[in-house]
């Protein structure tokens, strides 16, 4: 725990310049991922969770700029390393798995060629060794008949198998961090379970760290050691996953918990089941952020002070911080 985290983001701000002044898409984000662990990043669409991933990969869409903060990868600030160094890091140190496995594979090359190409480029293996490695990887992600499937094209695989191929590609260069952006959202539940089981197994074998971006608190409970909750460009709560899911400090996190429908099986199914709580209203639009706490307009506990003052990130428990005036009051009490 005391060791330096593998990836540390310090006070990262990403802005998009517009006609009416710059918009802060990410505002002063800090988080740290320890070696060999999984960090769940949760939030609603547009909260900045995918933007954080793209900032780490240096793949921000045109116009978006990192205006302050640091991204430390194993102690090295990668916000301003030369492009050549960044290309070296992508693939070797960090790789990414996307939501839609169909569009993230190149349809005109066989999966074997695509995996082998990645290995050749990043690790300088010759063609024969690269192919050998591709077969190993397909076996590692439990694709039946790996040798034969090497020559298949992406469209010949089902959605779940394609996502396995994506994971194989991501793992091929033995990266120390995998960023998985909603890796199972496009998949069926039974296939999702398979992919999660596979990711955990591979993590235990290779010791890679995982940043799991998801909207599903259930996925966080299943996979994550730590969790960071995002809301409207802020990271509003972070800490150990077990702690946060049991005792959320931020009203938004507890709101998310109570609006997720739960499956009630066995004896509890016969009872009527409580009505779902809602979080009223919706996420504020970028560029029209409230003055104080960005969650205040939807918060049941917000008062006048919350609406006018930006909350600080305060420690509310061991390794557990939250950006909320009310949480701070409680922590002090």
């Amino acid at each position: 725990m005391t060791a330096q985290p593998f990836l540390e983001i310090r006070n990262l701000t990403v802005e998009l310049p517009t006609d009416s002044g710059p918009i802060k898409v990410l505002d002063d984000i800090s988080l740290a991922i320890r070696r060999g662990t999984t960090m769940g990043v949760v939030g609603e669409s547009g909260c900045g969770k995918s933007m954080t991933a793209l900032a780490i990969m240096r793949l921000l869409p045109p116009g978006f700029k990192i205006t302050s903060g640091q991204i430390l990868l194993d102690g090295e600030d990668i916000t301003d390393v030369p492009d050549a160094r960044m290309r070296e890091l992508r693939g070797n140190e960090i790789s990414m798995i996307f939501q839609e496995p169909m569009t993230s594979l190149n349809p005109v090359f066989t999966v074997g060629e695509q995996i082998a190409e990645a290995v050749r480029q990043h690790q300088g293996l010759d063609t024969g060794k690269a192919e050998q490695r591709a077969i190993e990887m397909l076996k590692a992600v439990q694709i039946p008949g790996a040798e034969a499937r090497l020559n298949s094209y992406p469209h010949e695989f089902s959605g779940g198998m394609r996502q396995r191929v994506m994971i194989a590609m991501a793992l091929a260069c033995q990266p120390r961090l995998i960023i998985a952006d909603e890796p199972t959202t496009a998949l069926d539940v039974t296939v999702q379970a398979q992919i999660f089981a596979l990711m955990r197994e591979l993590q235990q074998e290779t010791g890679t760290a995982i940043m799991l971006i998801t909207h599903d608190l259930g996925a966080v409970a299943e996979m994550a050691d730590d969790v960071a909750v995002f809301y409207a460009g802020w990271r509003i709560e972070s800490g150990p996953a077990a702690e946060i899911l049991r005792r959320p400090s931020h009203p938004y996190t507890s709101g998310l918990m109570s609006c997720t429908p739960r499956l009630r099986l066995g004896a509890s199914a016969a009872e009527g089941g409580a009505a779902l709580r809602e979080i009223a209203g919706m996420v504020p639009q970028l560029g029209k952020m409230p003055v104080g706490c960005r969650f205040a307009p939807r918060c049941t506990r917000a008062d006048g002070y919350c609406r006018t003052n930006v909350p600080k990130d305060v420690i509310v428990g061991p390794q557990h911080t939250a950006m909320c005036w009310k949480a701070e009051e409680e922590a002090l009490a």
Binding site: A275, L276, E278, I279, A280, G281
Partner: peptide, 13 residues
């Protein structure tokens, strides 16, 4: 509606 105790009037949505 008792189930939506966190809700302001919906019209504000």
């Amino acid at each position: 509606d008792p189930m939506t105790d966190t809700l302001p009037p919906q019209a504000e949505v």
